[in-house]
Nucleic acid binder design. Structure first.
Lengths: 177, 177, 177, 177
DNA sequence: TATGAATGAGGATTCATTCAT
DNA sequence: AATGAATGAATCCTCATTCAT
């Protein structure tokens, strides 16, 4: 019975992700429930309201990202960054970001975001320290910039934007403008 | 009365831009009308439905961008690109992009987008030809990349992302990864 | 100037009749005004509100019918009835009847209806008296029956319904059922 | 719950019929829902929009009429016609006809109308063949005429109009005019 | 427990009517 | 006097949420 519940929860989240991706954030709870082959009532048993569902999706995605960042702490910083970028390409980060933008962050989401920022900033600091990354921007600025690269619909680790950005960050020379 | 009507139309568009920017695309027509100090009926006289309002905002922004691109055709290509980036920083392009993503493009919006793409691609081609820009990406790829840089909330001509991107594009060397 | 006003009034009534006939009673005041090549304001100068317009149409049609009935008082009763039926075929009586059904009758419309009923009933009485019409129904019943025949969309003086009815009324024999 | 839902559907249809009959086709969905002691939402769960409600009322009335016509196919034609007229007197056919006139017929309503016309025409043909009905009109003309008699507010099987019409149809003699 | 029917507040849109030009 | 822009109440409809089965 607990297994059933867990399966249902997964189906709901999966259905929601799929529908949000395909039809935008306006998808109705009923549609999500149907796509998960469940009644609305069951959806509401798992998530007290729509915000809870959205928050759950956002938090689980962010949690996975944080864990990924944690797990690569022992790598060289530049390699770890590349890893993170590759990892993100397979995640619905663009979707989650825009969904989450709808509502103010819950405390736990805020905490997650903070942790990710800290981990990322730390990574960047180490990269700069090892002269793998240009140092004329603060780690926070660079973190913001990477966020854009990552939280983009259809972002891939080897698409032009990512490539040019990483190229631009790799060096230590001043601006060309 | 013609003058009044024009003023009202401007107030509606202004109010809509402000509210969309602040509270997202879910703002109600009533709220927009109130923010413009008008009755809903007036809003609907100017824009037959919500989509028409959104389309109008999108198209006028895109038209201005196209005109800007046209008017800088006689400059050197790199300087023209910088000009465009600076111009876009002052425009609600991020907003317009996300709003427009809600609905499929109208024919005239599609045409505008096409024109802008053509102008931008041409600019990039010329920049590559003059060795102002790396040539290991197609002009279309670079256009896509610049679109991201430009259609970003809070984009500025001298913020880190833009700077790094332009740096990364300026050179002619291969990838550092 | 008075001539203009009269012409405008006629155009409004004409446009309204046409649109009501074609698109039903839901036609908007704006549409009527446009069809009359006038602004709504002008329409409202002539008719204080929608009901006034509808009433006017109804009353002018009923007035004409009453006048027609009056003018044939000197004929033989059966011939006068045939005349009335022929006259009605060219009038928008079906339309007016259904329009008027929307709202309770104004005093003057009620008066007109009463006059018409009286004239018609009188005609029928005379026809029965002259043995031109079967007498097993009261004049009021026969008046009601003729109303149906007449206030029908597309009624014509020689269509099957009218023909059969007049046949059925002409005789003096009892029911065939 | 299935039983409840069915009951609710019936209450909606009943309320709608009553209100349409009393206050015309302009009754609001909210009023119908209130008269059925339900929320608007429930009304819309049962009927996706206003047209669906009207269509449903029309189609169920027409279906019943068709079934009535079918079930009397084995009777003598004249008796079957009388039966139909009697049956119709108890049905809201006038209402349904005027409601349905609001919108173009749905395919299934069109089919029903066609079937009814065919059955009625056939009945008339047989009646003419057995010399129960005058033959100087085509069956289609007579069908049209009967439609008027039947689809009239307050039609009864023994009211003057019906009586006179049936009288007029019974015989085989030419017009009296 | 899962279901889906019921609810009703809220948003989009229309249109009769008023009023500034 | 004519015009058509402005108004907002009224209507249709949606959808998050609750609740009876």
């Amino acid at each position: 019975m607990r297994a059933d519940a867990r399966r249902n929860r997964q189906r709901i989240v999966g259905a929601a992700l799929g529908l949000f991706a395909e039809h935008g954030p306006g998808v109705s709870m009923e549609e999500i429930a149907q796509a998960a082959d469940l009644g609305v009532g069951t959806l509401y048993r798992h998530f007290p309201d729509r915000r809870a569902l959205v928050e759950d999706i956002a938090e689980s995605t962010l949690t996975a990202l944080r864990d990924q960042l944690c797990s690569s702490r022992k790598m060289g910083p530049w390699e770890a960054l590349l890893d993170m970028v590759r990892y993100c390409a397979g995640q619905p980060l663009a979707l989650v970001t825009s969904l989450a933008a709808t509502a103010p962050a819950s405390p736990s989401r805020a905490r997650l975001t903070g942790e990710i920022d800290a981990l990322l900033t730390d990574l960047i600091k180490r990269a700069q320290h090892e002269n793998d990354m240009r140092s004329d921007f603060t780690p926070e600025q660079i973190a913001g910039l990477l966020n854009v690269a990552i939280c983009r619909p259809g972002a891939r680790a080897d698409d032009p934007l990512t490539t040019v950005l990483l190229d631009g960050l790799r060096e230590t020379r001043p601006t060309a403008t």
